[in-house]
Design a protein around this nucleic acid. Sequence first.
DNA 1: GTCTATATCCAGATAGAC
DNA 2: GTCTATCTGGATATAGAC
Lengths: 213, 213
Amino acid sequence: MPYLKKPNPTPEPIDCRILTAALELFAKNGFHTVSIHQIQVQASVSIGSIYNHFGGKEGIAKALFDHVAIEFDEVVQDGMAMSEKPVAQCAEIIRLLFTYTDSHPYIISYILNMRHADLLANQPSIYDTSGFIKISEIIKEGQARGEFLPLNDSVAFSSIFGSALRMIQMRLDGLIEQPLVETLDDILMSTFDGACTEKGLFMSHALNSERVA
Amino acid sequence: MPYLKKPNPTPEPIDCRILTAALELFAKNGFHTVSIHQIQVQASVSIGSIYNHFGGKEGIAKALFDHVAIEFDEVVQDGMAMSEKPVAQCAEIIRLLFTYTDSHPYIISYILNMRHADLLANQPSIYDTSGFIKISEIIKEGQARGEFLPLNDSVAFSSIFGSALRMIQMRLDGLIEQPLVETLDDILMSTFDGACTEKGLFMSHALNSERVA
DNA sequence: GTCTATATCCAGATAGAC
DNA sequence: GTCTATCTGGATATAGAC
């Protein structure tokens, strides 16, 4: 029965197999708990090949970072293409990140956690990527148009993407069973319109209760 | 000159020295990159003592977790004591977390990052602590009173604490030079009242642009 | 309880055949 | 370019003196 004979279904190139295996293992177990031997087994490759292609474990991590940075940039670009308006662009980026988290959790996990997880300092982080820079520019444009509050860079970023990123973290940590997209509308609403039922609810409290300086 | 003779200025108990040293090293470099030898040196203790007290590196991590969980719970309790109103309680907890991040960055870093950073799965996380449970109850109470939007647990938590936690992360990652407290009012405002200048700005976009299902 | 010296193990890296 | 076999360093952990 030669038509059933598919004993070696590995059409992927070897370096791609290595990266895929390493990404999954790193995201699941963390850079330092994963040994090259594990990667070797999961990728069905020899140790020698790994060293030939990437020069070692750190080399794999570096290549993975470049890879996920490109993916992230594409998500941002896709989100930007959806509309001219910064608010809608940010909303679309969040939607894409949510779907991406559900479909490719290891990539998002690597983007978000890898730096803290393991690699030494002075390693590039997500904040150094072109995707993040594009987001910063969207926010600036939104402020110029008067859509977003005129807050400083990090505050504005946190206020727009903080809730969504926290949802992603919790989903990756296994605290949320639901697909993230199902929560999208709620997250967008609270992000853009606030977590309270009425605008000014917090300010009235702040005025009533004299806080200690 | 016996009055100058203070060659051994270590009034702290030995296990406390070990924990302090380990906390700093773990937060800075990550669990797996820190060796027991480093902890030994920084704490001015012998390896034998470390094994006597904690049974190894994982034992230290476990003890540290219990310790920071207690600190976190105290922060939440202090924040709750400030007011009866959930909105004000959450605002105060965020303020305390901000000041705590600036004064004790290693503790906050450990709380936020340690799980991803290193320890294996099935390790307790911040979400299992009494402090987090108290926060969940505050949110529920706020929803019952009609202050917070009636969103499900994780969405509500993310919408209220997501921006602040992102600020803390960025501060710990060295992306924010400013003390966090200086950004407190902006974060609270955007959290509770939204990141946009007008309520409903996002919804109008969503209606205008037919999103692909 | 605290220390030093030592044993054991295993991950990262290399050498060289094919 | 891919593989197997091997080397080496360093980390965890232990044994036993004090």
